[in-house]
Simulated assay, not measured.
Amino acid sequence: MTLQACASTEVPLGQASFAEYRQQTIAWMQENRTFQTTDHPAEIEWNAPREWRPKAPATRGILLVHGLGDSPWSFNDVGEALAAQGFLVRTVLLPGHGSKPADMLEVTLKQWQQVVREQTQILEREVPTVYLGGFSTGANLVLDYAYEHPNIAGLVLFSPAFKPANTYAWVTQYIGWFRPWLAKPDDGVRPMQTPVRYLNVPTNGFAQFYRSALLAQMHLDKGAYDKPVFVAITEHDSVLDTGYVLDTFNARFIHPFSRLIWYGNEPAPGQKNPKVVVRNDFLPEYRIARFSHMGLMFSPANPLYGVNGTQRICWNGQSSADMQKCLNGEPVWYSDWGYREPGKVFARLTFNPYFEWQSGVMMEVLAYP
């Protein structure tokens, strides 16, 4: 793949090294991205594949894969935490991302699988022990690869989208040809994207997400996964079927070191076991009504998404009047998409007050062997 090819709308794949992959992806973004701020270099860096190297030579590595509409920024804090514990950490940018939502109109699940496969194999040539991690759709992609490749040492899964909460998600596979967008683009109401994520995704993007969920379910239906797995989910996730994830964890992730963090109310007695750790997600001291699908991976100190972050997501399933109050900088509460209470304005929760503790649990899982 040449740099000339990177200047086209075809996303660069097939590189021989991570450095080449990062370089060509940056060149592609520079040609294709719809920038959201005047600081173009910062936006490129936030969305580009990234690497964290530990201080000492690494013997363990982990590849982290973001979710639908997101970017490598999803792992800004997780990557730093893992590198501090000796991991060589890398992220990828899934094809169709990092530029503009319309670039997802023709993307395929096979392209997403290809970048995971290529960059995992490159990482395996550099360190003897490789883990995979993913958020949402990315969790489906790494689970797919891990089931097919037993040399993967374990998994780190944030809000794994094994099964969508929307029971009509399957329809997206068939309607894209006559309805390319579920929500009309550039309608003057819904913003299209932020500096680090898309807020509107073509129908085809949702279709590929759904297909990734089917892949995950296919593997999980076949049998158990015996490597250590760390999972973090919130009970009130608006995107995924959290009950399915919890039941799947208990039935399929059988390694004794595996742990699932459940943010919310206590699960039913039949779903709770010593490998499931519960934390309350109603934290009024932070003005948090409930945790969100995307917020689990970010420290309260994150410069974009933290308590004092610059990226407040006001498009959160509320009235246009409340959204405008949020945009105007008025005091808000935080929640997942679509949650409302009378008299309160809600922004999306984009940080996790338990982040440091969560990172400690994650590292305990990854301490094996």
Rank of each mutant, 00 (worst) to 15 (best):
Y263F: 15
D241C: 10
R259G: 09
P191T: 00
D186N: 11
H236Q: 12
R211P: 02
W262R: 02
G223C: 15
S212R: 03
F158N: 00
D186G: 15
L215D: 10
E266M: 14
P160S: 02
V245W: 01
K163C: 11
Y244I: 09
V277P: 07
D237M: 10
V277N: 00
V171D: 03
R179I: 10
G176C: 01
F158H: 05
Q271K: 15
L260G: 08
A169E: 06
W262Q: 00
Q217A: 12
A216C: 06
D247P: 01
Y168Q: 15
V231L: 14
W177H: 10
D237I: 06
K272T: 08
P256K: 02
T194L: 10
Q173E: 08
K227Q: 07
L246R: 06
L246V: 07
G264P: 06
E235D: 12
P164A: 12
L199W: 04
V276H: 02
Y210I: 11
F249Q: 05
Y174P: 05
A268I: 01
A183H: 00
L182E: 06
L157F: 03
T172L: 04
N204L: 14
L260F: 00
Y174K: 06
Y210T: 11
V189R: 07
F158D: 06
S238T: 09
N200A: 14
L215A: 11
A224P: 13
S159H: 02
A268S: 02
A161K: 04
D237W: 02
T242N: 06
V201R: 13
T242Q: 03
G270P: 01
S212A: 09
G270Q: 07
V277W: 03
F230Y: 13
P164T: 08
P164F: 14
G205M: 13
Q173C: 11
A232K: 00
V277G: 00
V171Q: 04
L246G: 05
N204E: 08
A213Q: 06
E266P: 07
G205A: 12
P284F: 04
L215H: 08
I233G: 11
N265C: 09
D187V: 06
G264H: 09
P256G: 05
A268P: 00
E285P: 01
R179C: 02
F253Q: 03
H219I: 12
I261A: 05
D241T: 06
Y198H: 03
F257N: 14
D237E: 09
L182D: 07
V239P: 13
D187Q: 13
F178K: 03
Q217M: 10
F209V: 12
Q217S: 10
D221V: 04
P284Y: 00
A161C: 06
Y198C: 07
D241A: 11
K272A: 07
F257K: 12
P160F: 03
E235N: 02
R190P: 09
L214V: 11
D186W: 00
D186E: 12
N280F: 06
G264E: 05
W181Q: 05
F206C: 03
P195W: 12
R197Q: 14
G176K: 04
H236N: 15
D221A: 15
N280R: 08
K184N: 11
L220C: 14
R197Y: 09
H236S: 15
D221C: 08
Y263N: 07
P164Q: 11
N204A: 10
D241N: 13
A213H: 07
E266C: 05
N204P: 03
F257H: 11
G176P: 01
V231S: 08
V277I: 15
